[in-house]
Design a protein around this nucleic acid. Sequence first.
DNA 1: GTTCGCAACTTGTCAAGACAAGTCACACCA
DNA 2: TGGTGTGACTTGTCTTGACAAGTTGCGAAC
Lengths: 256, 256
Amino acid sequence: MPSKAVHLSRHAAIAQALREQIRSGELTPGSPLPSESQLTDRFAVSRGTVRQALAALRAEGLIAGGRGRVPVIRRAGLAQSFDQLVSFSLWARQIGRNPSARTFELTRRRCDPEAAEQLAIEPGAPIFFYTRLRLLDGAPVLVERATFVESVGRLLLDCDLDGGSVYEQLGQRGVEFAEAQQTICAIAAGAEDAALLEVARRSPLLEVRRRAAAPDGTPLEWSRDRYRADAFEITLHNQHALPGAGVALRAARNDH
Amino acid sequence: MPSKAVHLSRHAAIAQALREQIRSGELTPGSPLPSESQLTDRFAVSRGTVRQALAALRAEGLIAGGRGRVPVIRRAGLAQSFDQLVSFSLWARQIGRNPSARTFELTRRRCDPEAAEQLAIEPGAPIFFYTRLRLLDGAPVLVERATFVESVGRLLLDCDLDGGSVYEQLGQRGVEFAEAQQTICAIAAGAEDAALLEVARRSPLLEVRRRAAAPDGTPLEWSRDRYRADAFEITLHNQHALPGAGVALRAARNDH
DNA sequence: GTTCGCAACTTGTCAAGACAAGTCACACCA
DNA sequence: TGGTGTGACTTGTCTTGACAAGTTGCGAAC
């Protein structure tokens, strides 16, 4: 698998350097950014190149303000990266908790119609499926039921499903997830989930149905995750000035 | 209230013209955009100005692709605008449903500590509070319990709370909501909510706690909305290439 | 001590130019 | 008929320059 140290354009490299300074705390929320002229000196590039780098940080919500004064580092938002939103392990580590897993099965079987529709494959085609209980600091919080297309699922046979992040391990095997669509609703716990999550039957759970895809849009994974409702909440930060934030409230289909 | 027809820079005007063509269907998903040179001719500007306009559309996820070929209009995403995510009425109309409301009370009273914390005011300070039942096509789907700072809440006395969108009516009275933070979790219906929403007690509900603020960040509204779980779901579209999408999964505070 | 004007900084906008890298269609040759 | 090369298109990147508009600090005047 090729290294991530790919060639970056100058403006991308500058943006990355500034992101790293923000991430590391070297540039703290509320503090001013160096001015454009300082940055042109520091990176030995033209002002246009610096402005392109800053435009990216602005679009990501990392910096704000300007016009006559230097921009400032925005207060750290609640937003998580793509990887943190899709991978339970990465998310847990980001909030300083200890994730672990207990896998009940990894089976190769024929795809049911619902998963087939989501994965854009024929019903009955071979897929890999697992059920895992996820724990935070030893307490059960999530039941994952994940279906992978065969070409990705077979790689799971060599992964440590009780170990680290499945996404990280698949990433090391050349599988790239570039987008995901996650649909969240509330359901009542059935007997099986209630037992696994150690809650009363009919307790509310958050269900997240996720379809993750490759960069070219090909679906790779379809899963239904059920979270203890007392363990999770989702925060959306909506802004007028940041449309297209990839969130939709939908009328439920009434089929789950 | 001043008109929205404010002066736009050239690149902003070009971006706006192209957004309108996409919105109206004149440019349909999958179809190519005019090339940069065609756009420089059409708008009589330099290529850099056109590129800045296109960068905005790209950041919003409206167009994609390029490098050697013209970009294409992206398939309409599920994302809703800020107004649609915050206002039940606007959202309902966007999905083609008929919203209505039944207001039980609008009272001016002293602020409780929880709402005071969220609105950044002193506990005991005067606020306005209402409870509304929201219906889609005549069916109850949502109970809203909203608290407004006094200066905004007093305007509600002149609003038709059973009529159109509160946000629209406040907007007409000069109140601008520029950002909102909405936290979603699953809860079990209590007796009151169960009766209002016509579900069994202990049925799962989606709770959305929202704090909406003015452009300068001053909180204006704190509310707790409870949705029938069978009527709503939330879809997040996450992409590697669009970080900073304003979504966070959090460990619950266990205090609700 | 306060106020105001101005200079020096900042970012925003726009223009023009050049070259790199990607895509595609067409023509030519085997 | 298929493959390959090339030219003409595209966008991406970078540079230089100029002017508009906003902010801030400092000094002078009252």
